[in-house]
Design a protein around this nucleic acid. Structure first.
Lengths: 115, 115
DNA sequence: TGAGATATGTCCCAAAGGGGACATATTGTA
DNA sequence: TACAATATGTCCCCTTTGGGACATATCTCA
């Protein structure tokens, strides 16, 4: 846990989200559209202003593939290797479970604070 | 990361949520109504079927108080000590930041998957 | 009076995880 | 031709975290 400072509250949350639920964040991104490691790093950097370490990402992608949450659709080449990942039905289930929990959680928040 | 098995997906998510965002989960519970450590443990066990270790919770509560996210309202006694916590305005900001991120995140999910 | 529930405190060891470094190869561009 | 960007792989050390244990005190009920 880091010090909470007014404006950086949200930034802090996003960072923790990516630190602790990186696998699910990745699944979400890949679900949106098939993509590859390097692009995921660029995407997250651009959208969330967060720097993912490739040293953490690539092993994770291989891991998710081993668990059959992702599948490597093709290796688009040109002399250069590129692993394009696609989400599996099992992967989608994980994303759905996550989203449902969040939905239930927020639902409660709303009923408590009066819509 | 643990193996994802169909039915236990959601359970798994809840556990990770409490493991990784325990502070915010606690802030939420306290925001709902002022309460104390022992009751939080019972509450979480009952509602989520998750066992919080008091060895982790009590230091965290003291920590949240030191950071002024919680304040100890009173020590209701009877010879026995009980620390009743209340959320602070700073604590509420953290909860709001968290909820807003989740809201934005789910919003995107919905627009992507069609409403 | 003795056991179980209530209530909180603190500490330590082992496991996990992340940051950073080391490594390699191709493509484009100045 | 040389550097920056693209693209992925792997490893290690250090910090963080959790689980479990040790500790204490009161209250209630059988």
């Amino acid at each position: 846990m880091v010090a909470y400072v007014s404006d950086s509250f949200k930034k802090e949350i996003v960072q923790r989200m990516f630190r602790n639920f990186l696998d699910i964040m990745i699944l979400n991104i890949v679900q949106d559209e098939p993509t590859w490691g390097y692009q995921i790093i660029k995407h997250v950097e651009e959208k969330y202003d967060i720097r993912l370490r490739h040293g953490a990402l690539y092993p994770l992608l291989n891991n998710l593939e081993r668990k059959q949450l992702l599948k490597r659709r093709k290796e688009a080449k040109g002399g250069r290797v590129r692993k394009v990942y696609e989400i599996t039905s099992k992967g989608i289930q994980v994303v759905i479970a996550f989203n449902e929990f969040l939905q239930d959680y927020l639902q409660e928040q709303n009923t408590k604070t009066g819509i």
